[in-house]
Write a protein that binds this DNA or RNA. Structure first.
Length: 691
DNA sequence: GCAAGGTC
């Protein structure tokens, strides 16, 4: 029997159905599905296909390093690392199947982690059946289409151990740096237990991006400027024009222009300009582009990913974790359109495209072998999707697919130049004159703004001229979609992990709110790392690691060399941290203290802080004016409490946010007797009665 | 109780 191992169950199922046709028998061991079939392309050879759950082993330190207090973090740098089974049922099922097999075909994803997952699985299989070592093959496919899978299985090759070892180097380096520095920081600041302060190759530079932006905002000095607008009337109706000097830096000049225009009473058009511009249809969706589009519709990144996963598992969209922005040749675009033509909303568009002799999809800049870009694979029926959010996301993916096959749109920019009392004014706007792909993909479309169709020399009368007083704005905070895009540009994280890295920063109390702002703890952590171990807080560490991984994959370096060199770098970073332990702990502890300030005391105006009672060990909010002011408020005892920086509109006490892992975060004001809590109290009381 | 990478 030939054993085929894929990275996930859906791939196993699909491959079995492609190679086995209608005679696939479903079996299972330890609740892990197995697909048995006879491969008609291969002399009716008996095959079994098993799907893993991604990595099935977990890298860890041996038992004797587990007590944080007893082990000096430095010792983790050169400690031995072990790999233990993490997906135990899968490992058991795999071993069981390996016992029956005489050949093994590794058919995990066609990327670096896929190679590593394959090698990990192979090792487990060989443990169960040493004879298998003699007959190992690798199938590499970049789409789960019939053509591509049959091609891959007719051109089986060998596993690339160097590529897998490159992945192992990454695993080792991530754990060594992460564990050593996380423990060092946590111990230095006495943040043990579930309050530990984490540090990592991806999370720390990501946090640094957020902190840098916040510090720019804090350093920003707003400058006043003034704009002058004229409300005008004409033969084409009323409209508003703006003074050609968009921003007056000197108030007097703005007022002088305003007075002149006002006094004039009328003006005339001095120029009319119209230009046309083509707007190219967008590239196919990869995970980053999808996430950015979905977050701009108001979803959080984690939710957007979750929704896409649901649709994928439901059979409505293709695999959502991909870097690729170029449809592979084996992807049958017409077949997808035929499927879409069954949709009541999009069917017409799909049929329109099907009627064409040739389809020319757009191509993005990234072309990879992992998976195709994200496209719709099925049209959900009325009751198929759980809620509106799922529908929104399915339409986004389906419309994007149509858009990538659509025609260019054309926009027209119009501009009127006016002279009012010798002062130059302008009106400008643009509108879509040929919809092209925009008809199917309305998300990025900006509203048409019409410019009155006046001709040069036309008279306008002045209804009113006014001034608006404004200030230059600091650079904006990042939204989650923008941050994911920045992470990709900086090489931080992967398509499958970026959203969870951001979620981690929230859960650890390093960042809050959306758009994202760092907490004082987060800012302090980056300050400390920048000062004493700057490598870990910069994207360059990842860039360097990528280069070295390529060297390992190409056979120019060994994993041992790369990991050892990284260990040396960490030793020197560790020295610097150890030498400055007190100063650095001071910075971070100050940040943590600042995050404990929940706002101003409504009774005396001093700061309210989260305090832990020495007697009862319980936490509460108390006034720093104690004992002069004895204001206190109770707090939930579990989860993280954060200031929201505002007061309750009802009771005027500060509002806080409580974040408990695996629960939806909630907001509340400090006053337990606030009228906003009546409802909640009633519910609780009736629940108590019921039980 | 550490990371980041897979996948559910």
């Amino acid at each position: 029997m030939k054993l085929i191992v894929t990275e996930k169950d859906t791939a196993a199922k699909k491959i079995a159905s492609i190679l086995g046709g209608n005679d696939v028998e479903k079996d299972s061991f330890y609740k892990v599905p197995i697909y048995r079939f006879k491969n008609s392309l291969d002399g009716d050879e008996e095959c079994a296909c098993i799907g893993l759950k991604g990595h099935i082993l977990q890298l860890e330190y041996p038992e004797e390093y587990s007590d944080w207090r007893k082990v000096e973090p430095r010792a983790l740098i050169d400690a031995e690392l072990i790999k233990a089974p993490s997906a135990k049922a899968v490992v058991r099922a795999l071993k069981k199947m390996a016992g029956e097999a005489d050949q093994i075909i590794i058919a995990t994803d066609f990327d670096r982690e896929g190679e590593l997952i394959g090698v990990e699985a192979l090792k487990q299989a060989i443990e169960a059946n040493p004879d298998l070592e003699k007959d190992v093959l690798r199938a590499r496919y970049s789409a789960l289409t019939k053509d591509e899978v049959t091609r891959a299985f007719s051109e089986l090759s060998d596993l690339s151990y160097p590529l897998a070892y490159a992945g192992e180097a990454r695993q080792d380096i991530d754990l060594i740096w992460g564990a050593t520095l996380t423990r060092f920081m946590s111990l230095a600041t006495s943040r043990l237990g579930n309050q530990f302060l984490s540090v990592g190759r991806v999370q720390s530079p990501t946090l640094a991006l957020i902190v840098e932006r916040e510090l720019e905002r804090r350093a920003f000095k707003p400058e006043p400027y003034w704009q002058v607008f004229a409300d005008l009337d004409s033969s084409e109706g009323a409209f508003r024009a703006r003074h050609k000097t968009n921003r007056f830096k000197v108030l007097k000049e703005a007022d002088a222009a305003l007075e002149k225009a006002k006094a004039a009473g009328s003006g005339r058009v001095t120029g009319v300009k119209s230009t046309r511009k083509k707007i190219k249809p967008p590239a196919p969706f990869n995970t980053t582009a999808y996430t950015k589009a979905a977050t701009s519709m108001g979803l959080t990144a984690a939710r957007a990913i979750r929704l896409a996963e649901d649709l994928y598992l439901g059979g409505f969209i293709s695999y959502p974790r991909t870097d690729n922005t170029v449809y592979p040749k084996s992807l049958d675009l017409r077949e997808i359109l035929t499927e879409l033509s069954g949709s009541s909303e999009l069917g017409a568009a799909a049929k329109q495209l099907l009627a064409r002799d040739q389809l020319t999809p757009t191509r993005g800049k990234k072309q990879t072998t992992d998976h195709p870009p994200i496209y719709p694979v099925g049209v959900p029926g009325p009751g198929d999707l759980r809620d509106d959010a799922h529908w929104k996301v399915w339409f986004l993916v389906a419309r994007r697919f149509l858009a990538t096959l659509g025609d260019e749109a054309v926009s027209e920019s119009n501009r009127l130049d006016l002279s009012i009392g010798d002062e130059p004014f302008v009106v400008s706007g643009s509108r879509i004159v040929e919809e092209g792909w925009l008809a199917w993909y309305p998300y990025s479309r900006s509203k048409d703004d019409e410019v009155p169709r006046l001709e040069e020399g036309a008279e306008v009368s002045v209804v009113d001229v006014h001034r608006e007083d404004k200030e230059t704005q600091p650079p904006g905070r990042y939204g989650q979609g923008r941050l994911i895009e920045l992470m990709e540009q900086n090489g931080l994280g992967t398509k499958a992990t970026r959203h969870s890295i951001i979620q981690n920063l929230y859960d650890r109390g390093y960042i809050r709110n959306t758009p994202i702002e760092p907490t004082e703890t987060g800012i302090a952590m980056i300050r400390a790392l920048n000062d004493y171990a700057s490598l870990i807080a910069k994207p360059e560490m990842t860039a360097e690691l990528e280069k070295e991984m390529s060297s390992i994959a190409d056979g120019d370096m060994t994993k041992q060399q790369v990991v050892d060199r990284s260990r040396e770098l960490l030793h020197s970073a560790y020295e610097s941290l150890e030498d400055n332990k007190e100063a650095l702990a001071d910075v971070i502890v100050k940040g943590i203290q600042e995050d404990k300030v929940m706002g101003a005391c409504p009774n005396c105006g001093k700061q309210l802080r989260v305090i832990r009672s020495k007697k009862t060990k319980k936490r509460f909010v108390g006034c720093e004016g104690y004992p002069d002011c004895s204001t206190t408020y109770p707090l939930p005892q579990r989860g993280m409490v954060m200031s929201m920086g505002k007061q309750c509109p009802e009771c005027d006490t500060p509002m806080v946010k409580v974040i408990v892992p695996r629960r939806r975060p909630w907001r509340l004001c400090l006053d337990p007797d606030c009228p906003t809590k009546e409802e909640y109290k009633k519910k609780k009381a009736s629940k108590r009665k019921a039980s």
